[in-house]
Design a protein around this nucleic acid. Structure first.
Length: 271
DNA sequence: CGCCAGGCCTGCACGC
DNA sequence: TGCGTGCAGGCCTGGC
C-alpha cells in the first residue's frame, strides 16, 4: 500500500480533517512499532493544535505546535479517520484523538511503521535529514539524477530506491519507471548518459503522478475503506507480471532479485 | 510447512 | 586505507 503516491493520498485525505483541529490525546494499544511509540506523547499531545500535515518522501509530518509527529506506514500501514467510540479491530495500534472524539487510526499488521515525535526541525531529524529531492518537484531532474549517479557502480534500480538519491520511490515504482524509461534495471547507474537520466527522471514523475491519480480516485473516500483500493486499480506495466506478455510488445516479462528485491522488466522494451 | 510481501535500519565482508 | 556495495538479518503478520 504505502508508497509515495499512497502516502500523499493519505495526506490529502487527512489534512483537511486535521489541520487547525486540536488533539485530545493519543491511545496506544501496542507501542511496539518499528521503534517504540514515545510514551511522553500521552502528556505532550493533549491540547496541541495540528497546524499542518506535510509529507517528505514516505514520511507524514503532523505539525503540532510544540513538536511534530513523524508517521511512517512501513510495509502494511494505513490510516483512517474513525468516529468517536469506533471499536478497534486487531492491528489498529494507535489513535490520534481529536476533541470531538474522532480519531486518526493507524492500522499496521506487520508493525514496520513508526510514530515518532520531535521538537526540533523535523526535516533535520536523522530519518529525514539525508533524504534526496522530492521526485515530483523540479529539484529532481535529469541533471540532478545524472549528478547523483556519477561514479556509482550499483544498479540503476537500486540507486533509484536509494532515498538519498530521490525520496519515496519504492520497489514497485522503481521497476515501473525503468520500464517507461526503456532502461534495464541492472544497468550500472554511473554509466547512464545525461539523456538517459533525463528520460528516467521524467519516467519517475509520470509513473508517480499516474499512481497518484489512481490512488486519489479510489482513495478519495479512503477514510471509509481499508486503503487498498488505489493500489489494485493501478495498471502496472511490469511489476508482478513475470512470465506474462509485455503490454507493449508481448515479450514475456522477466524477473530477478536485485538488492534483495523482486525486480521486473521487459527484455525487449528495456535496454 | 516454507516462502513471499509495497520499508528501511544496522552490521558485515568484500573488492576496488 | 577507506569507501561503496551487496547481502544478511532484524523488525512482524498474513496469505498462498
Amino acid at each position: 500500500m504505502p508508497e509515495l503516491p499512497e502516502v500523499e493520498t493519505a495526506r490529502r485525505g487527512i489534512a483537511p480533517r486535521l489541520a487547525g483541529r486540536r488533539l485530545a490525546g493519543i491511545v496506544v494499544r501496542n507501542a511496539a512499532l518499528r521503534w517504540p511509540v514515545p510514551p511522553e506523547l500521552a502528556r505532550k499531545l493533549p491540547g496541541c493544535r495540528v497546524t499542518a500535515v506535510r509529507r517528505r518522501g514516505k514520511y507524514l509530518l503532523l505539525d503540532c505546535g510544540a513538536g511534530t509527529l513523524i508517521v511512517h506506514l512501513g510495509m502494511s500501514g494505513s490510516l483512517r479517520l474513525v468516529p468517536a467510540g469506533a471499536p478497534a479491530t486487531p492491528h489498529e495500534h494507535v489513535d490520534l484523538v481529536l476533541e470531538d472524539g474522532t480519531a486518526l487510526r493507524l492500522r499496521d499488521p506487520r508493525r514496520f511503521g513508526a510514530v515518532l515525535w520531535t521538537e526540533d526541525e523535523p526535516l533535520a531529524h536523522p530519518l529525514l535529514a539525508r533524504l534526496g529531492p522530492e521526485p515530483l518537484t523540479a529539484a529532481f531532474s535529469g541533471a540532478a539524477l545524472h549528478r547523483a549517479t556519477r561514479g556509482r557502480r550499483a544498479s540503476v534500480k537500486s540507486v533509484l530506491m536509494d532515498s538519498r538519491v530521490v525520496a519515496g520511490v519504492g520497489n514497485i515504482y522503481a521497476s515501473e519507471a525503468l520500464f517507461r524509461a526503456g532502461l534495464r534495471p541492472g544497468r550500472a547507474a554511473g554509466r547512464l548518459t545525461l539523456a538517459q537520466c533525463g528520460r528516467l527522471a521524467a519516467a519517475v514523475k509520470v509513473t508517480l503522478r499516474a499512481a497518484l491519480r489512481a490512488g486519489g480516485t479510489s482513495l478519495r473516500d479512503f477514510v471509509d475503506t481499508d486503503g487498498n483500493l488505489g493500489y489494485f486499480q493501478l495498471r502496472l506495466w511490469v511489476y508482478g507480471r513475470a512470465g506474462e506478455p509485455c503490454r507493449a510488445c508481448g515479450t514475456p516479462i522477466r524477473e530477478r532479485r536485485l538488492g534483495q528485491r523482486s525486480t521486473f522488466w521487459c527484455p525487449r522494451c528495456q535496454r
